[in-house]
Amino acid sequence: MGDGLEHSQSTVCLYRSENMNYLPNALNRVASHEFFHIVTPLNIHSEEIQHYDFLNPSMSQHLWLYEGMTEYATIHMPIKQKMISLEDFEKSLEEKIKGMQEFDNKLSFTEISKNAMERQDQYMNFYQKGPVLGMCLDIRLRELSGGKTGTQNLMLELMKKYGSGTYFNDDDLFDEITKLTFPEIRTFFSNYIEGSQPVPLKEYLTKVGFTYDETSGKINLLPNPDSKQIALRKAWIGQ
């Protein structure tokens, strides 16, 4: 089991395991995830988080951001920084895709978020489908910007606008992100986060030179990617 207590500039991590062989990798994952919470929700959050009422909580609709994007950063950072192999990165993505299939993916992520207290049965999907959506959003941003901008850039821009002590209006975030990025991004949120359309995994992974077998759940490099796919993959994960 792993958990963390986040502050505005630091994180305390706790981890417990009966098998010490799992400790190094697991602690890295837990520490990374909890550390990235410094970005969101500690520095990027809505009024519901800024003025959280512990007795009568009003939930934000953006757990896809608070937990999903945090977990995406946890699996994206090691490959971008050349800390893990491409094969290990593929396995991380496969694990998330397999994990999300255990939940009801016909439900709106924003609706589950707003009703997180009542839908505890779906809550853990923010750690499974959430990073998969983060991956697709990252790839789409890279595609629209010619490789120049991804979710990491987006988080930095949001931190500049909504830093510590400032908050966004819960209903306005998707429109605000659209203003900061590209008009086409609004459709992404409408379809896959507010809406419940299936995540276009095969389509998005093909954009960056990967194959995805929907039957086996395996992800592999395309045998003969074109120059555009290679360039977009390099912009996305650095290789």
Rank of each mutant, 00 (worst) to 15 (best):
M1A: 15
G4M: 01
L5H: 03
E6K: 10
S8W: 14
C13N: 15
C13F: 05
L14C: 00
Y15A: 15
R16G: 01
S17W: 00
E18K: 15
N19H: 07
N21R: 10
Y22G: 06
Y22A: 10
A26E: 13
A26L: 06
N28I: 02
R29W: 04
E34T: 00
F35Y: 11
V39M: 13
V39Q: 08
P41R: 00
N43G: 14
H45D: 05
S46G: 14
S46Q: 07
E47T: 08
I49C: 09
I49R: 03
Q50F: 14
Q50A: 15
D53P: 11
S58E: 12
M59I: 03
M59A: 13
M59K: 06
H62P: 02
H62R: 04
Y66Q: 12
Y66L: 11
E67T: 09
G68C: 08
T70R: 00
E71M: 13
E71L: 00
Y72M: 02
A73G: 05
P78G: 04
P78N: 00
K80Q: 12
K82F: 06
M83W: 05
L86K: 11
L86G: 07
L86N: 00
D88P: 02
D88S: 15
E90L: 13
E90C: 12
K91P: 00
K91G: 00
E95D: 11
E95W: 05
K98E: 07
M100D: 01
E102L: 10
K106N: 15
S108H: 01
F109G: 01
E111Y: 09
I112G: 01
S113N: 02
A116G: 03
M124Q: 06
F126A: 04
Q128W: 03
P131I: 09
V132A: 13
L133S: 07
G134E: 13
M135D: 05
M135R: 05
I139F: 02
R142A: 07
L144H: 06
S145C: 10
G147V: 07
G147F: 12
K148D: 14
G150T: 10
G150C: 14
Q152V: 11
Q152R: 09
N153M: 09
L154Q: 06
L154E: 15
M155N: 08
L156G: 14
E157P: 02
K160A: 06
G165L: 14
Y167W: 07
Y167I: 00
N169S: 13
D170H: 02
D170E: 08
D171K: 12
D172C: 07
D172P: 01
D172I: 10
D172S: 12
D172H: 08
L173E: 01
K179E: 10
K179P: 04
I185N: 05
T187G: 02
F188W: 02
F189I: 09
N191A: 15
Y192K: 06
E194A: 03
S196A: 15
Q197Y: 06
P198V: 07
V199M: 06
V199I: 10
P200W: 03
E203L: 13
Y204C: 08
K207E: 11
K207Q: 13
K207D: 12
G209L: 07
F210V: 03
E214M: 06
T215S: 05
S216K: 04
S216W: 01
S216E: 05
G217D: 12
N220V: 07
L222F: 04
N224W: 05
A231F: 12
L232F: 08
R233S: 04
A235N: 14
A235D: 13
W236F: 09
I237E: 03
I237W: 04
G238W: 14
Q239C: 10
Q239P: 01
